[in-house]
Design a protein around this nucleic acid. Structure first.
Length: 349
DNA sequence: AAATCGGGGAG
DNA sequence: CTCCCAGATTT
């Protein structure tokens, strides 16, 4: 029975699969890069980034020797920027400790930075034909409907439930099987209006037979996003704007942005707050010019409501030596990796 | 176990 | 608007 499921799924996958750039190879470097980019990111978004990336860095050796700021520039706008940081770390580790070759086991792959349980299973099955599960959001939805599983997909500890169900259905052609499950979730077994009438595994689906497919997957409600008022510093001097490289570890790390500071509810003077922030963190003395309307930007777990505070320079400090500070003319914005939250502001300047 | 970390597509 | 996407890491 489970073999029949796998056969039906793979036959369908071979018939309909899209001609994606990372599907023309089994090069583990290409598979790895595509899987990292595809984390929490739709296929249509990834294609352009992937092609530009492979063109500039065709091998893991090329990436290991890359200029890091150029890697961030290629990642600009894709989000989850720690992926880019881990990508570089992983490439260096493979070259330095693995003779430039990817490990061929799930356990070996999982040791590398940026590779978790999903990505390890995906690379192992697609590049090396290891019989490993690769459970992502699509697969949890598909499997929960096929088997009418009540496990809450929001709870990470329930991932093992789906992993063992996948292994029960697994067939020899593990790479195509895993990709078939994901392709099914992306195109047929979709969240809101699944196309059960054309589903290749309809006859295996418990939820379909009881017309309960919309009850799955079980998922607890999403927590509300926090709204933050943010004061953005716009400091223009001789046609160039003050920007800085955001610190590693936090939000939008390793990308360039305008100085920005959170304004809490009791704050009487956001203008003074931003001015003091410039003084303490940048050593820059300024005079307030004006306040203008900014933009709203929505992140995964919070919302920035940005207001622009424009200043004029009183005294120019000696910042020439600081590589994390730059005075950027508008014509040079494209030389810097700037996240979308700040890019939205550029046409307001 | 819970929080953190982007941005865009789809409805 | 909300939900979701080929999730991983940190606390």
């Amino acid at each position: 029975m489970s073999n029949d499921f796998g056969r039906a799924l793979i036959d369908w996958y071979h018939l309909v699969k899209r001609d994606l750039p990372w599907r023309v190879t089994q090069d583990p470097y290409c598979i790895w890069l595509s899987e990292i980019m595809l984390q929490q990111t739709q296929v249509v978004t990834v294609i352009g980034y992937y092609n530009r990336f492979i063109k500039k860095y065709p091998t893991v050796n090329a990436l290991a020797q890359a200029n890091e700021s150029e890697v961030y520039k290629l990642w600009e706008g894709l989000g989850y920027y720690s992926r880019a940081r881990n990508l570089i770390r992983c490439a260096k580790e493979i070259v330095e400790s693995y003779e430039g070759k990817f490990p061929q086991t799930v356990e070996g792959l999982k040791k590398l930075p940026g590779i978790g349980p999903y990505t390890a299973g995906a690379i192992a099955s697609i590049a090396f034909n290891v019989k490993s599960h690769a459970v992502d959001g699509n697969v949890m939805r598909v499997i929960s409907r096929i088997k009418m599983l009540e496990a809450d997909v929001r709870n990470p500890k329930n991932r093992v439930v789906f992993e063992s169900e996948v292994m029960r259905l697994m067939v020899n052609d593990s790479g195509d099987f895993n990709q078939g499950l994901m392709e099914l979730g992306a195109t047929i077994c979709t969240p809101k209006s699944p196309k059960c009438h054309i589903c290749p595994v309809q006859s295996f689906c418990m939820a379909y037979s009881s017309e309960t497919q919309l009850n799955y997957p079980v998922k607890t409600p999403t927590p509300k996003k926090e709204r933050l008022r943010m004061a953005v510093v716009i400091l223009k001097h001789k046609g160039a704007y003050l920007m800085h490289l955001r610190p590693v570890g936090g939000l939008l790390s390793n990308l360039w942005g305008f100085p920005v500071v959170q304004v809490d509810g009791e704050c009487q003077s956001p203008e003074r707050l931003a001015r003091e922030y410039l003084a303490s963190d940048f050593g820059i003395q300024v005079k307030f010019d004006k306040e203008t309307k900014g933009k709203t930007h929505i992140f995964t777990h919070l919302i920035w409501e940005m207001t622009l505070y424009h200043y004029d320079l009183i005294e120019m400090p000696d910042l020439i030596e600081d590589p994390e500070i730059a005075w950027v003319e508008p014509s040079a914005f494209s030389d810097y990796a700037i996240p979308t939250a700040f890019k939205k502001l550029l046409d307001l300047l």
